[in-house]
């Protein structure tokens, strides 16, 4: 049952997200693209772009969008697509809510607990590994079909890394480049 699958997939994604939105993308990508094959790697890249340009946390944006498009790809009615969207969004927020809620109740005690601190410390290098994996998995022949795409990548990398361009500006410029070159 697709709705049930959608719910528990995003519930686990929410539960295992460490290190914020970008790291969450790795988990979403693994589940939605690699394991379930609900959407292609390119469609996933498009969703990241849309999530970056719209308000709100990227994890919520992508859950909402993926919930909708997965149900739509199965050929269900728009009302059910909205339901899928709602399901994925609440599923991704729920574990976060449960965990954080309990931790803020217990925070005074946990703060000085060396085991809690040790686990959080070990997640730091892990998050870097997660992000690096997300980057590598996104490098597909479909996303980089020609040398022009590598030039766009290099330019986007340079202006984000050194000129501190905002993600929106970078995406808008890349979109204009895409229109001028490919349309």
């Amino acid at each position: 049952m697709i709705f049930f699958e959608l719910f528990y997939t995003f519930f686990f994604i929410g539960m295992f997200t460490i290190g914020g939105g970008y790291a969450m993308l790795t988990l979403i990508q693994h589940q939605v693209v690699t394991v379930h094959g609900w959407i292609s790697a390119e469609a996933f890249t498009d969703i990241i772009a849309i999530s970056q340009m719209t308000p709100g946390p990227i994890g919520i944006n992508s859950a909402t969008y993926i919930g909708y498009s997965v149900i739509q790809a199965m050929g269900y009615s728009p009302a059910l697509c909205v339901a899928g969207s709602f399901l994925a969004t609440s599923a991704v927020v729920l574990p976060s809510f449960l965990i954080t809620y309990w931790i803020c109740r217990l925070y005074a005690r946990l703060k000085s607990n060396p085991v809690f601190a040790g686990v959080l410390q070990s997640f730091k290098p892990l998050v870097i590994g997660l992000l690096a994996a997300a980057t590598l998995v996104l490098i597909t022949p479909q996303t980089f079909p020609d040398y022009i795409s590598w030039i766009i990548f290099a330019a986007a990398f340079a202006i984000t890394m050194w000129a501190k361009a905002s993600p929106i500006l970078t995406i808008v410029l890349a979109g204009i480049a895409g229109y001028l070159i490919y349309a």
């Binding site: 772009a49 992000l131 690096a132 795409s149 766009i152 990548f153 330019a155 986007a156 895409g178 490919y182």
Partner: peptide
């Protein structure tokens, strides 16, 4: 739509860069 597809063809490699930059920045800070 072909125009939309052309725009996203330009955007996709930039998105990869948008994920690569925080990865490298975090690695430099660690």
């Amino acid at each position: 739509n072909l125009t939309i597809e052309a725009i996203f063809k330009g955007i996709r490699p930039a998105v990869v860069a948008l994920i690569a930059v925080p990865t490298i920045k975090m690695a430099l800070k660690q």
